[in-house]
Design a protein around this nucleic acid. Structure first.
Length: 493
RNA sequence: GGCGCCGUGGCCGAGCGGUUAGGCAGAGGUCUGCAAAACCUCGUACAGCAGUUCGAAUCUGCUCGGCGCCUCCA
């Protein structure tokens, strides 16, 4: 079965056919770095990390070029002239420079990404490094006759663009979000900027006031780039004028992506993106989670409290295009599910050792291969990770049964180990090992000592002491389990 | 006002015309000194109304309720 992706352009699932079968090219809207990551961001980047991992699985390690931008220029708080820059606003609040703010929160972002086990993109362009190219693109759009300068600002002329003749594969303005611009009431909620010819025109370049900290010299005077421009410039810089996949949040469909499409097509004289992927939002009490709503749950705090993997598992258990209801009970439930999974995998690996990472190991075990096939089909069906997880849990259950019955079929267990490793670790990006720093061998020896002591107490039926030891260890985060084969210990996450 | 989405068992969450989603929680049981873990057994849900169909959670219409975008936003 081949891969199908829900394409916002057609509002349906389409078979994915890359422009270049040797190299899939994908761009994802990265964060504006003026605050810490919240759970909404986590959904976004974990979702696309899973997409990326599955594409890598299908096309090979060198078969995907994955670009994510970092927006380190604050864009306007609104499109009007009163526009304040979000990064500068945060800088004022923290009494630091905008550059420090961007650097600080970007470092924070990658720290959280690592804790969530999101792989680094192949290219990570920063908006401030591409100002010259952005200016160049503005000039190109002007040259095409679909942008105009007013008082040091440059606006995209939507009307002129619509009237232009366009070739095969080009998208009208409004074609992504299914809007007819003539029918837009236009500027209902914000006062129309008097500099614009039409309310739907958008800024490519903005004139900067004296006090604006981040500004660059352009042919139109001192200013800064408009808020849609960087993605157009940086995506085509790395991926070409026309590339395969562009991902982002559903709230950016309009106007952000719509504008990206228009200006990229105008500047490059080429179609822009083949497949648009939009993920849905995280809700709290039915409301969208967002910084400005004051309901954003900070990822760092959550990781400290429950760990990064339960959060990742929670997110992977819902589909990327569905809104996800966030509450502490739901996430605790996901945590329990993750723990069960982890317990199984760690016990399995005590027998099999690390997985060999080879699909052929399935061979000879149709039940294992069957689960992998169902898993793959689910992933190929628009990256349906919740269904994929459901199938993988069948494997978890089977392993537990084998383990409980004391199965001697080691190679079957190894096949399952490969299955669970591929699915849960490689594709879904979960990890199960506990980093115990250095002292691995020492810890093992010490634990053996403690367990021996406790077991001699048990042999003497001194259960008070035995239970006390178990309670103490539990408080220290070490869980003891007495089984037929002896006592095993593990570190709880 | 325009465009779009959703309403599933105690909770989260799949589902795209006919077969068990899955996870969590709960009840009983097996095992255990007790725990823990694991295993076994147990729930017949799909907002309401009408329609299409041999058959609908799944298609159509209406009603009620909720959400998103149209303004920065993952």
């Amino acid at each position: 079965m081949s891969l199908y992706i829900y394409n916002t352009l057609s509002r349906s699932k389409e078979e994915f056919i890359p422009i270049d079968p040797e190299l899939v090219r994908m761009y994802v809207c990265g964060p504006t770095v003026y605050g810490h990551m919240h759970v909404g961001h986590a959904k976004s980047y974990i979702s696309f990390d899973i997409v990326r991992r599955w594409l890598t699985h299908l096309y090979g390690d060198s078969g995907l070029l994955y670009v994510m931008n970092i927006t380190d220029v604050g864009h306007l708080v609104s499109d009007g002239d009163e526009g304040e820059d979000k990064v500068e606003a945060q800088a004022r609040r923290e009494n630091r420079s905008p550059f420090e703010i961007a650097a600080y929160y970007e470092a924070s972002f990658w720290e959280d990404m690592k804790a969530l086990n999101c792989l680094m993109p192949d290219r990570i362009p920063h908006a401030t490094d591409f100002v010259r190219q952005q200016i160049k693109m503005v000039e190109e759009v002007i040259a095409k006759g679909v942008a105009y300068e007013v008082n040091g600002s440059v606006y995209f002329d939507v009307d002129a663009w619509q009237k232009k003749e366009k070739g095969e594969g080009f998208i009208e303005y409004g074609g992504l979000s299914n809007r007819k611009i003539e029918e837009q009431t236009g500027g209902e909620r914000i006062e129309a900027n008097p500099e614009k010819k039409n309310p739907q025109d958008f800024a490519l370049w903005k004139r900067a006031d004296e006090e604006h900290f981040m500004q660059w010299l352009s042919p139109w005077g001192w200013g800064y780039p408009g808020w849609h421009l960087e993605c157009s410039v940086m995506s085509s810089f790395y991926l070409g004028k026309t590339f395969d996949i562009h991902g982002g949040g559903i709230e950016n469909q309009f106007p952000h992506h719509e504008c990206e499409i228009a200006q990229s097509q105008a500047a490059n004289d080429a179609p822009f993106v083949r497949y648009w992927m939009h993920h849905n939002m995280v809700n709290v009490d039915g409301q969208k989670m967002g910084k400005s709503f004051g309901n954003a749950s900070n990822v760092k705090e959550l990781i400290a409290r429950i760990g990064g993997m339960p959060l990742r598992f929670f997110i992977a258990q819902s589909h990327y295009r569905s809104p996800l209801e966030f509450d502490l009970d739901a996430i605790a439930a996901a945590g329990s599910g993750y723990e069960r999974l982890r317990g199984t995998i760690l016990r399995l690996r005590e027998i099999t050792g690390a997985a060999s990472d080879d699909e052929p190991v399935f061979k000879g075990y149709p039940e294992v291969e069957g689960i992998w096939t169902k898993f793959s089909d689910a992933m190929n069906d628009d990256f349906n990770s919740p269904v994929a997880i459901g199938h993988l849990f069948e494997g978890v259950s089977n392993v537990n049964k084998l383990l409980t019955s004391g199965s001697e079929d080691r190679s079957l267990l190894e096949a399952y180990n490969v299955l669970l490793t591929l699915g849960f670790e490689n594709i879904l990006g979960l990890t199960f090992d506990v980093e115990d720093g250095k002292g691995g061998v020492l810890t093992d020896d010490l634990m053996k000592l403690i367990i021996d002591l406790r077991n001699s107490a048990r042999a003497e039926r001194n259960f008070a002491v035995a239970d006390k030891i178990r309670d103490w260890l539990k408080e220290a985060g070490v869980v003891l389990e007495d089984g037929k084969e002896g006592t095993r210990w593990s570190v709880s996450v």
